[in-house]
């Protein structure tokens, strides 16, 4: 298991030792810190959060709860930590961003290829969908993260305001699904026929590569 994954696993294990109120305090802090940067690695932030959580568990033994240990203004503390955190170098930013975008494109194209219409001539590919769907998915993920970040510490008193983030998230999700369906199912834009037997070769290769990647990742996880 890599260090960031190990930190995250340890955080989740240690949170079980907290009281419900303290767990909510740490959960909110974790969501707020992790949603501040959408497309970049959160490894340093999670390492910091783990250190703070371990200190809180020590403080619990002294009879202090999370609010007494960290203070009653977790948002200000989190903002200050984020402000003081060293910004990643542009190369690291680019690497994280490229990795994330590649993952989204890979998943989108994989599902689009599997769901593309099979004709007697071959596989009919909607090129607009291959460009549009990953873009829509990236926008939906970005907006959802921003929304989560902004509403974590929102003090809502009315029922509507309390549930506004969930409503907005649902709307964004529906909008995203609608956009994906429109771009992938409608016969608009340029289509390309991948002739037989190349369509079968391509689909078989993709399935083999995806299965191999999954097996390798499982192997790595098991051996680390």
């Amino acid at each position: 298991m890599t260090n960031p994954n190990r930190d995250l696993t340890t955080i989740n294990q240690l949170k079980r030792q907290l009281s419900p109120a303290d767990r909510k305090y740490i959960d909110d802090l974790q969501v707020y810190l992790n949603t501040a940067t959408v497309f970049y690695s959160n490894a340093p932030i999670n390492a910091q959060l783990l250190a703070m959580l371990q200190d809180l568990l020590n403080a619990n033994q002294d009879g202090l709860n999370a609010a007494e240990w960290f203070g009653h203004d977790p948002q200000s503390m989190a903002d200050e930590i984020l402000r003081q955190f060293p910004q990643p170098q542009w190369r690291a930013k680019l690497r994280d961003l490229a990795g994330f975008v590649a993952l989204i494109i890979g998943i989108s194209w994989f599902s689009l290829l599997l769901s593309s219409q099979k004709t007697p001539q071959g596989l009919q590919l909607n090129l607009l969908a291959f460009v549009g769907v990953p873009i829509v998915e990236l926008i939906v993920i970005g907006v959802a993260f921003k929304l989560l970040h902004r509403t974590t510490y929102q003090n809502a008193h009315s029922f509507f305001h309390r549930h506004l983030p969930v409503i907005l998230m649902g709307l964004i999700f529906l909008l995203g699904v609608a956009a994906i369906l429109v771009t992938s199912l409608s016969p608009i834009g340029v289509t390309y026929i991948l002739p037989t037997p190349w369509d079968t070769v391509l689909l078989t290769s993709i399935i083999l590569v995806a299965t191999s990647c999954f097996a390798v990742s499982l192997y790595w996880r098991y051996h680390s």
């Binding site: 703070m52 200190d55 809180l56 403080a59 240990w69 203004d73 200000s76 503390m77 003081q84």
Partner: peptide
């Protein structure tokens, strides 16, 4: 972090909280 906070409190900085120390 915890050690440091304890050391500060023992030296009279009793009002310090994590919200000040961690950033």
């Amino acid at each position: 972090g915890y050690d440091l906070m304890q050391a500060l409190k023992h030296r009279g900085f009793t009002t310090i909280v994590g919200g000040t120390l961690y950033p």
